[in-house]
Write a protein that binds this DNA or RNA. Structure first.
Lengths: 409, 409
DNA sequence: TACATATAGTTCGAGGCGCGAATTTAGTGG
DNA sequence: CCACTAAATTCGCGCCTCGAACTATATGTA
């Protein structure tokens, strides 16, 4: 007997076409609901007959429900389709001090939300988390739970399915997934917080699908989530996106990572507070929110500190722009509340990295940071069920645009 | 009635499965030739009957030919399949001073190769290039030419299909594709040189297909080609990968890009020569190759210059590693001829950027730089014909297949 | 030589799927 | 009541993969 290494390539079966089209329609319904079958056919390019068959299947699977009946000047009235908001996901956002647990529907709307302290021990936290999740499930007996999504300030390795790096939580390499999967009976997905923000933007954010985007999160540190060719770039061990620890100045101040002069040393919330303290003695215990408030009130020192922070954010983003040339950069963090103060400074800095062509759009995220992370984990779970949109459809930039008439809603 | 702009989603038809499987088999044949139909079935997971049908089609399309008959201890002898080496591609590698034109077969073997000067005028160069290509086609009357691939030290925008940035050639925004397509009657693909090296590695390099890889090219400047999730990350306007122009030190020497202290100011061949001249007066007109030779001969100053260069290469690669966390980094450039001198230094520097987990493999490219670029453009053209899923998506982009059979003229 | 056995490759009917024409359903206006 | 319009469904066709049956071709053994 001869042995051959069996690299099971992804081949297509007779059901593959259905799989792909199911994903296309499910995503179209999500984005454009309520929408009639006829419009789905027009927008997707599929035949009306095919659309009917697939939507029937989706309704049977409980992902979609028949909604209200529309009104047209002539002809039979369309039945609008909507996502079934009884399909739900349990989500959690782990933060160093506090963890949020919530129930969300397929549209990213939150039905229930509660907070618990994040414990020093990973095991205990996992147990408490599982306990809360089970409780939330019993509190919503009418819902169909599809899975659990968790975002965390660390790195989750998709290959080994373990948390491999979470210095802010001070947790060791840890299997967070197993225990929660066991307790809830649901499939658990984990993701880095910045990556979760990427998914939140891509799934629930404004605008059409982008193929290259970067999310930059600014809080105690700086994180980046990279979206290239319509997919999250996770890298080896899920470690991609550590732009925050690239040095801007090799002789700069020490960083927690062991290096010197890292971007986040200059541009994080912590850095802004440091700038403030340097010029204003005897002001301990100030939070970044306080600093924002001081600036809003016209405090000169606070204004200078934030301006310095803004320049540093922009300076680091030049790296991201030069390296990846994203179409769009979305910023997440408390500082975005004073976007008019930061935006122009950042855009000017970024402009210096543009050798040719248009600079990327830079804008603050649609939602507050914690909301973005939670929404992102909803998307993380949905990705598995909705399938192919992001995998297949966003790869190709050469999309033709057509003008098509669509009924009013 | 409301008008919406509708971006045509890519749906699957009944032929999609065939398209996908055709691509899978074609790639398996390429990688494992000679291979029997039975083995293809085993390796792919497809039924023997399906494999037979698809290979029949591939033979009809002239991509594949029946090869020799194998020998087994028992049973009917297998007929091995091979790629048809009469399928050929015309490739060119534009360099600031000299352009190489060549004919390659589907396996990346070169059948013919010649050089011409790169002219200051883009138009004239394009004309001369087209002329040479036509000539090469008539010189190989038995071949079936599938397309033209060109690599260049600049940026090609896949959306507008124009060269948007080529400072080293001193060319303006220019349509290089149109004229050559017209002259040869073949479809022309263009790609940045570093990206071409990525494709060369992925298609013709050793080992299995990696999902996250980076190629770093070091010559007069530094270029990086980014491969994430199994695809080239090209970015907006094809500008991704300008890590060479990210500053290592904001107070460093001026760079040609207008910035200061860019990576390539410290780590390019030019930088090494500068280091040498700084310590050794009166040594003008030295080339980088000379410097390598001096080091080989034990010249202390040359050794120190190269060591400085090696450290600088590694220091910049920390950015790439932190930002993208590739599984593997492939280095292209003349300096790789003395890999034992550079490799360990680079690996040590990269180690400093690793917060957790294994560092990426770092290795020199399998081929010489010019060979790598040429091979990469072969892959660039083949991608369009071999691509499994991509192929289905790109069909809408109104590209016609160019099977040009050149007979006696 | 005859026959069992093993392996490669082909043929053919069944079932899944999208397509597109025909049909049914359900409304408006004269 | 009838013409008209548009949504949604039904149905036959062709493409595709699957898997069983079959053919082709080798080796080993009685």
């Amino acid at each position: 007997m001869r042995r051959i290494d069996f690299t099971n390539t992804h081949v297509a079966s007779s059901e593959t076409a259905r799989d792909i089209n199911r994903g296309v329609l499910l995503n179209l319904i999500r984005r454009r609901q309520p929408i009639s079958r006829a419009d789905l056919a027009r927008v997707s390019g599929l035949q009306r007959s095919t659309v009917s068959l697939i939507t029937e299947q989706l309704i049977k699977e409980k992902w979609v429900v028949n909604g209200p009946v529309g009104r047209l000047p002539r002809g039979r009235r369309p039945t609008f389709l909507r996502l079934n908001d009884r399909k739900a996901i349990i989500v959690a956002d782990l933060r160093p001090a506090q963890t949020t647990v919530a129930v969300a529907d397929v549209n990213g709307r939150f039905l229930s939300q509660e907070a618990m302290p994040t414990l020093a021990d990973a095991r205990e936290t996992a147990e408490e988390l599982a306990q809360r999740m089970r409780h939330l499930m019993t509190m919503h007996p009418g819902l169909i739970f599809q899975g659990v999504g968790i975002s965390l300030p660390g790195r989750f390795d998709q290959k080994t399915q373990r948390v491999v790096f979470a210095p802010n939580l001070k947790w060791p390499d840890f299997d967070l997934r197993g225990p929660i999967e066991k307790a809830t009976g649901l499939r658990v997905e984990l993701e880095n917080a910045a990556n979760a923000c990427v998914l939140a933007e891509v799934w629930f954010g404004p605008g059409e699908r982008m193929s290259d985007m970067v999310v930059v999160t600014v809080s105690e540190g700086i994180g980046t989530g990279l979206f290239t060719n319509g997919q999250l770039a996770r890298g080896l061990n899920g470690m991609a996106g550590e732009f925050g620890h690239i040095p801007l100045d090799p002789n700069g101040p020490n960083c927690t990572c062991g290096g010197r002069g890292c971007w986040e040393v200059y541009a994080s919330n912590r850095a802004a507070l440091r700038y403030y303290h340097e010029s204003s003695s005897g002001s301990e215990g100030l939070s970044f929110q306080d600093l924002l408030a001081l600036a809003e009130a016209g405090d000169e020192i606070a204004l200078r500190a934030l301006d310095k922070m803004a320049h540093a954010i922009g300076r680091g983003m030049r790296m991201v722009v030069a390296g990846l040339a994203p179409e769009e950069i979305v910023m997440v963090g408390e500082f975005t509340r004073q976007w008019p103060r930061f935006g122009p400074v950042i855009e000017t800095e970024i402009g210096k990295a543009i050798l040719v062509g248009k600079p990327p759009r830079v804008r603050p995220a649609a939602a507050e940071p914690s909301m973005a992370r939670l929404r992102g984990t909803v998307a993380l779970v949905l990705q598995k069920h909705f399938g192919s949109l992001l995998r297949a459809l966003q790869q190709n930039a050469s999309l033709q645009e057509h003008d098509v008439e669509v009924t009013m809603q």
